[in-house]
């Protein structure tokens, strides 16, 4: 306390503000994380414990059988595999098509380039939530409704990704490209050995964002998959909730929460390993 009194008023004020900021930040973080905590804790409770009038903030009895129940009540593995399959191909096609186009628009010199790039930009203004009816008809004509190919098709190109990659490719100095060309690199070689290594952070970020968006997509899976064979995890969980809600007043939320936890494990792992990369990528892209 003596030490505290020796400080100048200004310094004292600063220290108080500092402490208040820390307390505020911790409180906000706890509030924000509470829904996730509640999800996890519910998934470990028994059926009778989730319907008590006074909810328990720590389970009286930790059980893991909800995870087994969620896994076996619906073809969970099938859903996960479908989601992985669709998301993987979406990401791959989007990235390959995107990198090629970004190279053409950033580095190419051909007539009509600006007009063609405007076409790409205008695609960002046409959300698929507006055009889903004709797209559905198109997919139906291809006989791809209720198939995994049909689920992949609507997300095979991302104008946003082309835009971001083009920005990054444009910022690479021309001398590197010239040097590569002197060494005999063609277009694909230039992309592979010069542009991608130099813009690695951006390329990784946009593909991971594409993966996460694909994994979390709900709109197209809801429209296009009609049978459990092609169902993706997001729709599968929502359906599980719908059915069980009707079955019982409690809705078996402990089992559903276990399903949700399983479904977010892949993205949380991706996040944990790449968070520095990703957070930087997100904000860098927004600044452009």
């Amino acid at each position: 306390m003596d030490k505290w009194r020796q400080l100048s008023p200004e310094l004292r004020r600063k220290k108080i503000i500092h402490a208040l900021q820390t307390i505020g930040a911790v409180v906000v973080t706890l509030v924000m994380i509470f829904p996730l905590y509640w999800m996890l804790i519910t998934s470990l409770k028994t059926e009778s414990e989730i319907v008590t009038m006074v909810p328990t903030f720590w389970p009286k009895e930790l059980i893991f059988s909800n995870y087994v129940d969620a896994w076996t009540a619906v073809p969970f593995l099938r859903y996960i595999w479908n989601t992985l399959y669709v998301t993987f191909w979406q990401m791959l096609i989007q990235t390959v098509v995107g990198v090629l186009a970004a190279y053409g628009f950033a580095r190419g010199r051909f007539p009509g380039k600006n007009v063609l790039f405007l076409i790409v930009l205008s695609a960002m203004m046409i959300p698929s939530q507006v055009t889903f009816i004709p797209l559905y008809v198109l997919i139906a004509k291809l006989n791809w409704v209720d198939t995994l190919s049909g689920l992949i098709l609507p997300e095979t190109v991302s104008a946003y990704m082309i835009f971001m990659l083009r920005q990054n490719f444009m910022s690479v100095d021309q001398s590197y490209l010239d040097a590569g060309r002197v060494d005999g690199l063609g277009i694909l070689g230039t992309i592979r050995y010069v542009l991608i290594p130099m813009c690695k952070a951006s390329v990784v970020t946009v593909s991971l964002v594409s993966f996460i968006n694909g994994w979390n997509n709900y709109f197209w899976p809801k429209i296009l998959s009609k049978s459990p064979e092609t169902r993706l995890i997001s729709v599968g969980l929502a359906q599980m909730k719908n059915i069980w809600q009707d079955l019982s007043g409690t809705g078996y939320y402990n089992t559903i929460m276990a399903g949700v936890v399983i479904s977010i494990i892949p993205v949380v792992i991706l996040f944990a390993f790449n968070q520095k990369y990703m957070l930087k990528g997100y904000s860098k892209n927004a600044m452009k």
Binding site: I126, T131, L135, V157
Partner: peptide
Amino acid sequence: CTVPALLLILLLNHYPL
């Protein structure tokens, strides 16, 4: 290089509109 992207965008965005 830009053709695949353009074709897909025209097919999936402009044509449905």
